[in-house]
């Protein structure tokens, strides 16, 4: 009985991280279902997808890609900052990330409202008048970007919580696994966009 380990309330950062990764896998496969539907329809209606994609503004898409990539870097840097014990810098970098995420959402808002203004939204007269492949493309466009935007919102909420936890001293130089996990989630949002962007905006 001597050779046993006494049980103190102990923190297993590795377990938290593994849990987060597995959660990320489920998110990836959630989008995976949509990508599968996209792949099948794109193979079937490649011409229509091409025509429909002309409606999308590649410039806005590119701008949003750049925004998300930069925000991914600032989150990664915020983790570096906390690891080096620079609490103030970490908070600033997270604030920048949240600001960038807001820009992303503003862009998205104008993009969507432009389409809706032209009567191009699910169930509308204009949309049901399109031929089959184009109809499917816009359906997928709204579903994928909508679900992605929802994840941006969730990511923003998580990062905001992390920001306050750094402020209140719950996340520190030697207890930062929650910030790391929040960061992982944000990178997931970025990762999905990296694939959505060429598949929706850059069809030629």
């Amino acid at each position: 009985m001597e050779n046993t380990i006494s049980h103190i309330v102990h923190r297993d950062d590795e377990a938290s991280k593994m849990g987060m990764w597995i959660f990320i896998f489920t998110e990836l496969l959630l989008f995976g279902g949509l990508f599968l539907v996209y792949a099948v329809f794109r193979a079937k209606y490649s011409e229509d997808f091409h025509i429909a994609a002309m409606e999308l503004n590649a410039f806005v898409g590119t701008a949003n890609t750049v925004i998300l990539l930069i925000s991914s870097m600032t989150v990664a840097m915020a983790i570096t900052a906390i690891q080096k014990g620079d609490k103030g810098l970490s908070i600033k970098l997270l604030a920048v990330t949240l600001l960038l995420a807001t820009f992303f959402m503003i862009n998205k808002y104008f993009e969507w409202s432009g389409k809706i203004h032209h009567g191009l939204y699910p169930g509308s007269e204009v949309m049901l008048g399109l031929n089959r492949g184009q109809l499917l493309f816009f359906g997928l466009y709204y579903a994928t970007t909508g679900l992605h935007a929802l994840h941006v919102f969730i990511g923003m909420a998580i990062l905001a919580v992390m920001l306050f936890r750094i402020k209140s001293g719950k996340i520190t130089q030697d207890n930062f696994v929650h910030l790391e996990n929040g960061g992982l989630y944000w990178h997931l949002v970025d990762l999905i966009w990296i694939f959505l962007f060429p598949l929706l905006y850059l069809i030629t």
Partner: peptide
């Protein structure tokens, strides 16, 4: 690894019924 696929599928049927997005 399998449940998310049915999750999104069910969501797509819900979207089909409520938002009329065709899948």
């Amino acid at each position: 690894l399998a449940t998310p696929i049915v999750g999104i599928t069910l969501l797509m049927v819900i979207a089909e019924r409520t938002l009329h997005i065709g899948f």
